[in-house]
């Protein structure tokens, strides 16, 4: 009986101990040590979507849709080696309709194992030819390349950049608003960008890019003739449609600055 009692006590103690819940570790958030921030501006001021701004030629200009792909984002170490950050990223300003949101911009955040000093960053504006040879069915829905809406079957190409919006009539012209839509795509439009910048990834670092939309549409000598040709989906390189969006994406590349 004495042994039985001892056994029972032991069993109860064991039962009580076994019911103690294991401490639950909080989910570990991977620390992001590199943020690429992108801000759309117009003449140096934050540009919310669906907001009129005054263009140099006197017309009102409004951006409504603005997004673009980046390919092969890489940073350069002090020893000259390039480190891949991301093979593809999508920068989408469409939901930034308030001034505060526009001033905050779009963040791409990464956790890089490589730390230390870096001297440059480079990426392609658009979808690189190797990725552009693929199809949305080749990618997960978790990435923008997996979205069939970012692909234009007519040209077997991803849509590299979207710029859509409207202008009003010039003060001296008749007529109402002119909506515009320029979608760039196809391999010949891919723009490689390199930026020199000293930075260190021992601690969280943000690289801040701006793209001035005024320099995209109203760049002196490379203006986009919105009123005369308000729509293009890229197309064949021999056409005016191709030329106009090639100018759009070229201007975008030139307007993209690292602060």
């Amino acid at each position: 009986m004495r042994y039985l009692s001892a056994f029972l006590i032991l069993a109860l103690v064991g039962w009580a101990a076994s019911c103690k819940k294991d401490p639950v570790d909080p989910p570990v958030e991977e620390t992001k040590n590199l943020t690429l921030n992108f801000k759309a501006q117009f003449d140096g001021q934050a540009l919310p979507m669906f907001t009129d701004v005054s263009a140099p030629n006197g017309e009102n200009f409004q951006l409504q849709v603005f997004n673009f792909f980046l390919s092969y984002i890489e940073v350069q170490k002090e020893n000259g080696d390039w480190v891949l950050v991301d093979s593809s990223a999508y920068v989408n300003f469409n939901s930034l309709v308030d001034l505060a949101d526009a001033e905050a911009g779009v963040d791409l955040s990464y956790s890089l194992a490589e730390t230390g000093n870096f001297t440059a960053i480079r990426f392609g504006l658009g979808v690189s030819p190797d990725l552009n040879a693929m199809d949305p069915a080749d990618f997960s829905s978790a990435v923008a390349l997996g979205d069939a809406g970012n692909y234009w079957t007519a040209w077997d190409s991803y849509i590299f950049t979207r710029t859509e919006g409207k202008i009003d009539s010039l003060p001296t012209a008749a007529g109402g608003d002119v909506n515009f839509l320029y979608h760039s795509g196809v391999d010949g439009m891919y723009q490689q960008k390199n930026f020199s910048k000293q930075f260190n990834l021992e601690q969280a670092t943000s690289l801040n890019f701006t793209i001035d939309i005024k320099e995209v549409f109203y760049k002196v000598g490379q203006e986009i003739p919105i009123a005369d040709n308000n729509v293009s989906h890229s197309g064949d390189p021999s056409t005016a449609e191709y030329a106009i969006v090639k100018t759009v994406i070229t201007n975008m590349g030139q307007a993209l600055e690292l602060q």
Partner: peptide, 10 residues
């Protein structure tokens, strides 16, 4: 096909 987009495999 802008909105009702499709590819052969998707």
């Amino acid at each position: 096909a802008h909105c009702h987009s499709f590819t052969r495999d998707a």
